[in-house]
Amino acid sequence: MIELKDVSKTFTLHNQGSAVIEVINDVSFNVAPGECVALTGASGAGKSTLMRMIYGNYLTQSGSIIIGDLDIVRAKPREVLALRRDVLGYVSQFLRVVPRVPTLDVVADPLRALGVAPDEAQERAKFLLAQLNIPQRLWSLSPTTFSGGEQQRVNIARGFAHAYPAMLLDEPTASLDATNREVVLSLIEDAKERGAAIIGIFHDEAARARVCDREIDVSAFTPSFDTLEQSKVPAI
């Protein structure tokens, strides 16, 4: 389902003396449907960078990343958008939403983008929010004012609203209590069962052991990973 072949990435910092930093060098691996692969390596090894490359968020300089039947390295923007809408889900560590939009709509949004009827999308959103123990009185409020843990759970609900055939999970269980951690892990297990190919970053070793079938150590592919995270161009 997800197929990486000879993937490499460099950052060129034009405004800092055109420094060229090699981040990922020559990664190749596959993830089959129903399989969950963990990316491991010390902080700054490039796990998130690699995940963002797979999502098309970062440009990949060489190699190919094939998801379904699309090579995301060479795909046109609208093909990537279509892929993200239908095939490839991504639960990031941070929730980024339009201010003022109610939580329920934030979670239903990916389904609405797929053309699911508003009622049906809202039903699914309510189900997930309830499952993740977001109190019902918060559903009509914008998540921008929520606590970190609540925002994380809203983000997960949103990420699991649609049954994507391929998913990227960046620290889905971080900052969650035991109950909610359990809910998230079972959501991942359900996704695997229905045949989703998953790539995840888990610092939580027990969680990793429970849901992941394989581990890939990213530091093996990062030539100079010690200063990377600091020098990277900041995201907005």
């Binding site: 910092l13 968020n57 907005i236």
Partner: peptide, 25 residues
């Protein structure tokens, strides 16, 4: 030119990098 999040998060051209890094946090 490119996907919005890609251009903003991983700008390639010197000017795009400057533009993105000039935004006040």
């Amino acid at each position: 030119a490119g996907l919005t999040d890609q251009v903003l998060d991983d700008p390639q051209h010197a000017y795009s990098q400057l533009l993105v890094s000039s935004v006040l946090q």
